[in-house]
């Protein structure tokens, strides 16, 4: 077994994104949903690093990766803030309880 490093990184990207999406599809807990989003975006960051390595343009890739991290943090903060409010007003973090808007 002598896997090239880019391949390992690719595997990491795929497993991060895969785990994230799996979680989004099956979890009923709002906090876990936010965590799942984080996982996916971590996959994105790795993907940028990998892409930068492949095309020998690491500086641009790093810029983009850092920007993504910043934006992603903001989203996570807002998501968690909303989760807090939801817990306060509905007393639950269950997605099932959060499906009153339908049809």
């Amino acid at each position: 077994m002598n896997l090239p490093i880019p391949f390992i990184v690719l595997l990491a990207v795929l497993s991060l994104a895969g785990t994230g999406f799996y979680c989004l599809l099956f979890t009923r807990n709002l906090i876990k949903v936010v965590v799942a989003l984080q996982l996916i975006v971590k996959g994105v960051v790795l993907a940028f690093v990998l892409a930068g390595h492949l095309v020998q343009n690491e500086s641009l890739a790093q810029t983009m990766a850092i920007t993504v991290i910043v934006a992603d943090t903001i989203v996570a903060v807002i998501g968690l803030a909303l989760a807090v409010q939801i817990r306060l007003h509905t007393g639950s973090l269950d997605l099932k309880a959060l499906s009153n808007l339908k049809r």
């Binding site: 999406f21 989004l24 599809l25 949903v33 099932k96 499906s99 339908k102 049809r103």
Partner: peptide, 17 residues
């Protein structure tokens, strides 16, 4: 068709995927 709008977030994510 309105039944497809279940309001459940997991289901909505499935639509995107």
């Amino acid at each position: 068709l309105r039944n497809t709008q279940t309001g459940l977030l997991n289901w909505n994510v499935l639509g995107i995927l």
